[in-house]
Amino acid sequence: MESSNHHKSLFYKGVYFGLPFVLIGFILFHFSIITLHVMPINPISIALEPEINAYTGSLFRQNWHLFSPEPVTENDVVYMKVKTKSNQESDWIDITTPFILANHKNYLSPLNRIMRIPSTAVNEMHGEEELINRYKKKIYELNKEQESEKILKRVSEYQQKNSKDTRLLLYRFVFSTAARSFSPDDIQSINVRVVTEEPVPYSQRKNPNYERKKTYEELGWEKFTPVLNW
């Protein structure tokens, strides 16, 4: 009886004094990994990249760039051109601006989030080149050639698939939007154009005659597939 109480008391003391340090140890370990995961690329995060990714998984995956290092500065406006089954083509229709105007009227509406779909898809589509260049520059600086090949290959493969998939997502969004103005039975195919409008440079902000530079990218015709209406 006495020995059982003694063991109980030892167990109580072990938990009471030991557990706080075990939990603090876990917190230190966890947030060390998270710090390596979120901070700018450095020699340690490159060396431990597979282990860090395996630990964070999708549960602890995070990204706190939040408009930095360089914020978004360009307006990506998505246009669609609809070809009917009788081979008639519509004009280019701006599908981004109506969303933005509606959102400005009321931020507490579903459009506050739905509005992000075309711009996020365009950003993801174009993200590949920038990301790979960033990695190349950083890895060159850190002189980790062997590891760099593996990492670059992985990033490149992932980005290629991501770019292809987000293009499809953009089309599906456009299909859904087109079906609101045209009869879905009458649509044969759709072409998408992305107009990227550069910002007015800070030095030109008081120049009312300054014209924003625009670049055009046509993504091509895709056969229409009905997508549920938003």
Binding site: P71, E74, T97, N103, S119, Y202, R205
Partner: peptide, 10 residues
């Protein structure tokens, strides 16, 4: 940076 962010209509 704030000036440029406010150029994005979204």
């Amino acid at each position: 940076a704030i000036y440029y962010i406010f150029q994005v209509d979204e």
